Simulated scan of single mutants.
Amino acid sequence: MQQHRGMEGNKLVAYRLLTLAFASTAALAACGPPATVTGPSSGLSTTVNIIDITETPSDGKVIAVMQFSQGGKTVQIGDATMTCNGVALTYNGLLFGYAERVPLVATGGTYRFRHTRSGVNSDVNVTVPPRPVFAAPTTAGATLARSASFTIHYVADGGTAVRGDASDPSHSKNDSQADDGTHDGLDTSGFTPGPGTLSLTRTLQAAVAGTPFSSATSKFDTGKTIAITWQ
Score class of each variant (00 low, 15 high):
N121D: 15
T56S: 14
L89R: 05
L18Q: 13
V48W: 00
A23F: 11
G78E: 06
A148V: 11
T116E: 15
K61C: 09
H115Y: 15
E100G: 11
V124M: 06
V75M: 01
T54D: 13
M66E: 15
Q177H: 10
I228K: 00
A23E: 14
V102F: 03
D179H: 01
A216F: 08
R117D: 04
D221L: 14
G158T: 11
T74A: 14
V13Q: 13
R101E: 15
V37I: 09
N174K: 10
L12V: 08
D168G: 03
T25H: 15
T203Y: 07
A148C: 04
A142F: 08
V120R: 13
A140D: 10
P212K: 02
S24K: 04
V13L: 13
G97M: 02
S42N: 11
R112A: 15
L12T: 02
G119P: 05
I63Y: 08
A26T: 13
V124A: 04
T203S: 09
T19L: 13
K219T: 13
L95A: 12
A35S: 12
G43K: 02
V13S: 11
G190V: 06
R112N: 14
S199P: 04
T47V: 12
T54S: 12
T151D: 15
K73Y: 05
R16Y: 08
R131F: 01
P195C: 03
D179W: 02
S42K: 09
T160S: 11
V208C: 08
S189G: 04
A206Q: 12
R146L: 12
G93A: 15
P195G: 00
P169A: 07
D52W: 00
T160Q: 13
A30Q: 14
A145I: 06
L89M: 06
P34I: 02
P34Q: 03
T197M: 11
V162E: 05
P193G: 10
G97S: 04
L17R: 12
Q70L: 01
D52M: 02
L200H: 06
N49E: 14
R101S: 15
S58H: 03
T46S: 12
F220A: 04
Q3R: 14
P40C: 00
H115P: 07
N92A: 13
V105Y: 02
S170E: 14
T46L: 03
T56M: 10
G141P: 05
S172W: 06
I63W: 09
G196K: 08
P57E: 15
S214N: 12
A136Y: 09
R16S: 06
P40V: 01
T229I: 03
G181I: 01
A145F: 03
H153P: 04
A142Y: 10
V128W: 00
G158P: 11
D168E: 10
P132L: 07
T138H: 07
Y15M: 12
A209R: 12
G108N: 01
A178C: 01
F22I: 10
A30C: 03
G72A: 03
L17M: 14
K61E: 13
T127S: 15
A135N: 12
F134L: 06
R163H: 11
G159R: 03
G141E: 06
G210Q: 10
S218Y: 11
A26N: 13
S214V: 04
L95Y: 14
M66D: 12
L12K: 05
L186G: 03
F150N: 05
A27M: 09
F68V: 02
V133F: 04
D180I: 15
A80V: 06
A178T: 11
A178I: 07
S118W: 01
A206M: 08
A64T: 10
